[in-house]
Nucleic acid binder design. Structure first.
Lengths: 120, 120
DNA sequence: GGGAAATACCTTGACAGGCGAGGTATAATG
DNA sequence: CATTATACCTCGCCTGTCAAGGTATTTCCC
């Protein structure tokens, strides 16, 4: 994966909720669709993913149930709750705000050549 | 501060480098200008700030020297190094890439109302 | 003169999230 | 029948953040 971990940190919950907004799904598939959507540039590590599921379930943002497929490995499905939906919307809002601020703070450096400027 | 810490996490280094791209400065002032630039919505905690300075200096991205003001509390000034400049540019590039991916991953959820959906 | 606030720096220890490394079990594929 | 893919899970380390505490100087008001 090309983007570093800390750039993602704190966003895993929102990402997972976003995926579940599309409908119920399970860990392995969510991870694959992340990969696909980003052309392999981004992938949640399994440990991270399952940690997040626990966290989200404890928060009441998702609930889980075992699938009943007759074949293949068993799957634990997750569904987003009403609380989860509103949390998701809040997270997206916060993310966009933070994103704008960061853009501003970072650009702060790049235009300004103008340099010699300042000192002491 | 209104935006939560984890949304910023991992970006402090880039933010500090951005500030130093404008010219030498010192901790207290950098923090203030962050505050001002974002209308108080964002502020680096002091502990975080000074931890980051140590980290950046160890990485060779900044160097420090004591100011020689005749009055007031002593100030430790920081200057960005050539390595720091190129690191800064890399960080901004990475941030923008990650930012686009995140936007894509998060929006992934929001269009789809269509809700009843459900899958299995 | 005395106290509070602002400026300016710093450290310690706890906490939380990410994840490497390891594990389990089933089914399909060669 | 061994390997790969699917699918789940846990333990323990690492790293960045930050609350809480500290120091020293200057200014401002009473």
């Amino acid at each position: 994966m090309s983007i570093t971990a800390d750039l993602i940190r704190g966003h895993t919950d929102a990402i997972i909720l976003a995926a579940l907004m599309q409908g119920d799904s399970y860990g392995y598939r969510i991870n694959r669709s992340m990969c696909d959507l980003t052309d392999g540039r981004f992938e949640l590590k399994e440990a991270t993913l399952y940690t997040a599921f626990r966290r989200l379930e404890e928060s009441g943002y998702i609930r889980s149930y075992w699938g009943d497929e007759a074949t293949g490995a068993r799957r634990r499905y997750y569904a987003i709750t009403p609380d989860g939906r509103s949390a998701y919307r809040g997270m997206v809002r916060e993310w966009r705000e933070a994103s704008e601020l960061l853009e501003k703070l970072m650009r702060f450096g790049s235009d300004g050549d103008v340099s010699g400027a300042e000192q002491i």
